[in-house]
Simulated scan of single mutants.
Amino acid sequence: MKTVPLGMSCLLLLMGCQTVPDRLPQAEPAPAASCYFPIGASTTVAVTTPDALAQDVLTQSVAVLEAWGFELVSTDTRLGLVSASRQRDLIGYYDPYDNAYGYGQGMRVFGGIGLGRGGSSVGLGIGGGFGGGVGQQPVEVERVSLFVNDGYVRISRDIRRFDHLRDLRESYSASNEDFCQRFQAALLPISGESAL
């Protein structure tokens, strides 16, 4: 009988411990119901064709986003897609992961004492956080995507926060009730004007 080396036994044991995720990744929290809404009123649909109404809503959506300080990233009017983003500095932003292990703030001091045959030695090291990121602020990037199709508008929004070294620190879905209702309310007066 052949013997299996200890390293191979451990490898086989670890391979048996692999697990498969119980679900696919999804947006959390889930988008609010108000982020999916119909465009136009029944009177508006009677006046214009669905394609013209969709183009009108796309144009008005771009106007609303630009009025709110967003910059267009990409648009595809054939598909009914608009993507925009805006960025702002986070003054006084506290990075919850910065001091997770006792590091990250202030000066770092390392030292040690060694005893040996015929003498002793003492060592001390001092390091600071110099280099990349000096004078840069943490930033928040907010991205919004709009999809207009079959008489409905779907809004997707996410927020990402980067530290002063531009490392991603937080990211979450922000398709919430407040933003989507404000966006829908900003489109309503414009849609009403196109019906006249």
Rank of each mutant, 00 (worst) to 15 (best):
G123A: 11
T59M: 08
R169E: 02
V73C: 00
Y97P: 00
S171C: 00
F162K: 04
G16D: 06
F70L: 02
V109H: 07
L6Q: 13
A63S: 06
A195E: 09
T3N: 14
V122M: 12
A67K: 04
A100M: 12
T44V: 14
R108V: 13
L14R: 09
R157W: 05
Q60F: 04
Q184N: 11
D76W: 03
Y172V: 01
L90N: 06
L14F: 13
R108N: 15
Y36V: 07
F183G: 00
I159F: 12
E177C: 02
S156T: 13
Q26W: 05
P189I: 01
A174F: 06
T43M: 04
E28A: 09
G192H: 05
E66N: 03
S61D: 08
G133N: 03
P21Y: 06
S42M: 11
V20A: 11
Y152S: 04
R182Q: 14
F110W: 09
V122S: 10
V141N: 07
R160G: 04
Q26F: 07
D158F: 08
L72Q: 12
G127Q: 15
A46P: 00
D98I: 09
T59E: 13
L72H: 01
E140G: 01
P31Y: 07
R108Q: 15
G92F: 06
A30W: 08
T59I: 05
R86D: 00
Y152A: 06
A63M: 05
E140S: 09
G104L: 10
S34M: 01
